[in-house]
């Protein structure tokens, strides 16, 4: 599979459709509007494996507001709300 990094614009994972697959470009914890401080949110995301270069796929979404989403990060599945996923910039 050819990597679409160069051709696709950056997108916050929080806006990704179910079925989206891409690679994490960077984390922007300050812009997410989460209840957590930027540093704390960034730490938690990294602890769950959301680091630059990791491949992510949106597998499932909830019924209310298509939220939360289940994201495959490499070979782990993480449930996260779209609000926090806004901090994960993918392409």
């Amino acid at each position: 599979m050819t990597d679409p990094i160069d051709t696709r614009p950056n997108l916050p994972l929080g806006l990704a459709e179910c079925g989206f697959s891409g690679v994490i470009q960077h984390l922007a914890a300050g812009d997410a509007g989460s209840a957590l401080s930027a540093d704390e949110l960034e730490c938690r995301l990294i602890e769950l494996g959301f680091v630059e270069g990791a491949r992510v796929t949106v597998l499932h979404e909830g019924i209310v507001g298509r939220d939360p989403i289940a994201v495959r990060v490499e070979n782990v599945t993480i449930a996260v709300r779209r609000r926090e996923a806004m901090a994960i910039i993918v392409a």
């Binding site: 509007g33 989460s34 209840a35 957590l36 949110l41 938690r44 995301l45 769950l48 939360p68 289940a70 782990v76 599945t77 993480i78 449930a79 996260v80 709300r81 609000r83 926090e84």
Partner: peptide, 13 residues
């Protein structure tokens, strides 16, 4: 006035 705390959870195999 309070925004909800994040939900982040591993879904194990």
């Amino acid at each position: 006035d309070y925004t909800p705390a994040p939900f982040m959870l591993e879904l194990p195999d």
